[in-house]
Amino acid sequence: MALAPLNAAAEAPRVIVTRPEREAQAWVHALQALGVPSESLPLIEIAGLQDPSSLTSAWQAVPRYLAVMFVSANAVRHFMAARPLGSPIHACRAWSTGPGTRAALLAEGWPAELIDSPDETAPQFDSEALWALVAPRAIGASQAMNKAGAKTAVQAQAVVLIVRGADAQGELAGRDWLALQMTSAGIQVLQTVAYVRRAPQLSAAQQSRARQAMSDGSRWLFSSSEAAQHLLQACPDLNLDRAKALVTHPRIALRLKQLGWSCVDLVPAGLKAQAQSIKSMA
Results as ranks from 00 to 15, higher is better:
249 H>A: 03
241 D>S: 14
272 K>V: 15
266 L>Q: 13
246 L>A: 01
266 L>R: 11
239 N>L: 14
247 V>G: 06
269 A>P: 00
222 F>W: 01
235 C>Y: 11
217 G>L: 08
248 T>Y: 07
257 K>D: 03
238 L>A: 05
265 D>V: 15
238 L>P: 00
231 L>V: 10
262 S>D: 12
251 R>G: 00
251 R>C: 03
244 K>F: 10
275 A>S: 08
228 A>H: 05
251 R>S: 07
276 Q>R: 12
236 P>F: 00
257 K>W: 00
245 A>H: 01
253 A>H: 06
223 S>C: 09
250 P>I: 03
233 Q>L: 09
251 R>K: 09
219 R>Q: 14
256 L>N: 01
229 Q>M: 12
233 Q>T: 10
276 Q>P: 05
246 L>N: 01
220 W>T: 01
254 L>A: 14
237 D>A: 12
250 P>M: 04
214 M>K: 04
266 L>K: 05
245 A>L: 00
275 A>C: 03
261 W>R: 09
261 W>T: 05
263 C>M: 14
218 S>R: 00
227 A>D: 01
262 S>T: 14
222 F>E: 06
220 W>S: 00
262 S>Q: 15
250 P>A: 03
234 A>C: 12
275 A>F: 08
270 G>V: 07
229 Q>I: 14
228 A>P: 06
217 G>H: 07
249 H>I: 01
242 R>L: 12
221 L>C: 04
234 A>T: 02
266 L>F: 10
263 C>R: 15
272 K>T: 15
276 Q>I: 12
241 D>C: 12
269 A>K: 02
240 L>V: 02
272 K>Y: 11
276 Q>H: 12
225 S>I: 01
235 C>K: 09
243 A>N: 08
243 A>T: 10
228 A>M: 00
246 L>W: 05
246 L>E: 09
253 A>F: 03
237 D>L: 08
241 D>W: 07
258 Q>R: 11
232 L>H: 08
260 G>Q: 05
231 L>F: 09
261 W>K: 08
264 V>L: 06
260 G>H: 04
276 Q>A: 14
222 F>I: 03
214 M>Q: 11
258 Q>K: 13
